[in-house]
Amino acid sequence: MTTPPLRLMAVHAHPDDESSKGAATTARYAASGAEVLVVSCTGGERGSVLNPSYGRQITDLEEMRQVRTVEMAAAAEALGVQHRWLGFVDSGLPEGDPLPPLPPGCFALTPLEEAAAPLVEIVREFRPHVITTYDPTGGYPHPDHIMCHRVAKEAFETAGDPERYRDRGAPWTPLKLYYNHDFSMTRIRTMHEAMIDAGLESPFGDWVESRAAREIPEREVTTRIPCAESFPARDAALVAHATQIDPDGFFFATPRDLEAQVWPVEEYELAASRVATTLPEDDLFAGIAGDEGGAP
Rank of each mutant, 00 (worst) to 15 (best):
E95F: 02
D97K: 03
D97P: 02
P98F: 07
P98E: 08
P98H: 07
P98G: 14
L99Y: 08
L99R: 10
P100G: 14
P101R: 12
P101H: 04
L102A: 06
L102P: 06
P103Y: 09
P104W: 06
P104R: 06
G105R: 03
F107Q: 02
F107A: 01
A108P: 01
T110A: 09
T110Q: 09
P111E: 11
L112A: 10
E113I: 03
E114H: 06
A116P: 03
A116W: 00
A116V: 06
A117W: 01
A117K: 04
A117T: 14
P118D: 12
P118G: 07
L119K: 05
V120Q: 06
V123F: 03
V123T: 13
V123H: 05
R124Q: 07
E125L: 08
F126N: 11
F126R: 07
R127T: 08
P128L: 15
P128M: 13
P128K: 12
V130K: 02
T132M: 12
T132A: 04
T132H: 01
D135G: 13
D135L: 01
H142S: 09
P143Y: 01
I146P: 00
I146H: 00
M147I: 00
M147W: 00
C148V: 03
C148M: 07
R150T: 04
R150W: 01
R150A: 15
A152Q: 00
A155K: 02
A155L: 03
A155E: 03
F156Q: 00
F156W: 02
F156L: 01
T158C: 02
T158K: 13
A159G: 06
A159C: 10
A159F: 01
D161I: 07
P162Y: 11
E163C: 11
E163G: 12
E163R: 07
Y165P: 12
D167V: 07
R168L: 05
T173I: 07
P174S: 09
P174L: 14
P174M: 10
K176D: 08
K176Y: 00
L177D: 01
L177Y: 05
Y178K: 00
Y179A: 13
Y179V: 02
N180A: 09
H181V: 04
H181S: 12
D182P: 06
D182S: 14
F183K: 05
S184D: 15
S184G: 15
M185P: 02
T186F: 13
T186K: 14
R187W: 03
I188R: 09
R189T: 07
R189F: 05
T190S: 15
H192K: 09
I196Q: 14
D197W: 02
D197Q: 09
D197T: 14
G199E: 08
G199L: 03
G199V: 08
L200Y: 13
L200D: 15
E201S: 14
P203W: 03
G205H: 09
E209Y: 08
S210R: 04
R211G: 15
A212L: 05
A213Y: 04
R214Q: 12
E215T: 12
E215D: 12
I216Q: 08
P217K: 11
R219H: 11
V221T: 10
V221M: 07
T222E: 06
T223W: 06
R224V: 04
R224H: 11
I225H: 04
A228P: 10
E229K: 11
S230A: 12
S230Y: 02
S230E: 05
F231C: 10
